[in-house]
């Protein structure tokens, strides 16, 4: 038997064959494009000609040009606001389902939470435009009630609208990990806290909240990472002041015709997101270790 035949019958090879479709998919559609973007970011483009010589020029521009710094900071700010709002909105819902809903009904409640996903994300953004617009539901109602005389302009085409729309879209994703973490909190621990003299609020702060932190951190990561790179929402409801780094990346690849700079911006954004995510993962590990 040759080494190849031996290897082919081994457990390792079997595992490799089993994952091979996914592996091929991942390699072709994730790893290869990623490598291409990285390579591209070290090249330069002059109108239509691509100079294939190694250069850090794009990174220098991406990290020093005030406009890119500003957009990056704004993207971070918006996605942090979205994350904070999402987690704060999701926690009470997850708590309610875990602690107040009878065990028989929990599955139904989780199912109800997924209802927004029945509509496409674009549709939901357009609905927010309808709700928040100049002649939209909010303005129409407030004017009809005589609360305001002129339609409010600060509710659409700015950063507030981006935060609101994104938070609405991501709340269900935040509810699930928090719910799972709360489900895993041993109820006798909460009884013990009560037995030892804590009031409802104190035992939430001292037992339930710390023990559900892994879920909160997971929710934070799940919401933060995708929102920082979102470009559809800022494009549709953000107006000129609500644009984020992803819109700039798109601009560089398309209209500005400077793909290498776009690639450098994309890689820079990825590095920043990775750093933030690593902090959260480290926090999560710390909590999980303590909670064991």
């Amino acid at each position: 038997m040759t080494w190849f035949q031996k290897w082919r019958r081994g457990e390792g090879a079997q595992g490799l064959f089993l994952i091979s479709p996914t592996l091929a998919f991942t390699l072709l559609l994730l790893a290869v494009p990623l490598v291409m973007v990285i390579v591209l970011s070290f090249w330069t483009q002059d109108y239509l000609t691509l100079h294939r010589t190694f250069s850090l020029e794009n990174y220098r521009t991406a990290w020093t040009e005030p406009m890119y710094q500003y957009l990056m900071a704004r993207s971070l700010k918006i996605s942090m606001l979205v994350t904070a709002m999402t987690v704060l909105l999701a926690y009470p819902v997850a708590y309610f389902i875990s602690f107040r809903v009878s065990p028989k009904r929990k599955a139904m409640w989780i199912f109800l939470i997924t209802i927004p996903f029945w509509t496409s994300y674009l549709m939901r953004i357009f609905l927010w435009k309808v709700i928040l617009g100049y002649n939209g539901v909010v303005n129409g109602s407030l004017m009809g009630l005589g609360v305001i005389e002129q339609p409010l302009s600060f509710i659409l085409y700015n950063q507030n609208a981006v935060v609101l729309t994104l938070a609405h879209a991501w709340v269900p994703f935040a509810i699930l990990p928090i719910f799972v973490a709360l489900e895993r909190v041993d109820r006798s621990l909460i009884e013990a806290a009560e037995d030892l003299g804590d009031t409802k609020w104190r035992r939430f702060l001292r037992v339930t909240l710390p023990l559900s932190m892994p879920g909160v951190i997971a929710a934070t990561i799940i919401v933060f990472i995708p929102t920082i790179g979102d470009y559809v929402t800022p494009r549709l409801v953000g107006g000129p002041n609500g644009l984020m780094i992803a819109n700039m990346i798109e601009l560089q690849f398309k209209k500005a015709n400077d793909a290498p700079l776009g690639a450098a911006l994309a890689i820079s954004a990825m590095i920043i997101v990775t750093c933030v995510a690593l902090i959260f993962i480290w926090l999560n590990k710390k909590y999980i270790r303590e909670a064991k």
Binding site: L189, E191, A192, L196, V207
Partner: peptide, 13 residues
Amino acid sequence: TNMVFQSYAIFPH
């Protein structure tokens, strides 16, 4: 009153 729980309910954190 204070209680010793069957699971002991020791706070893991």
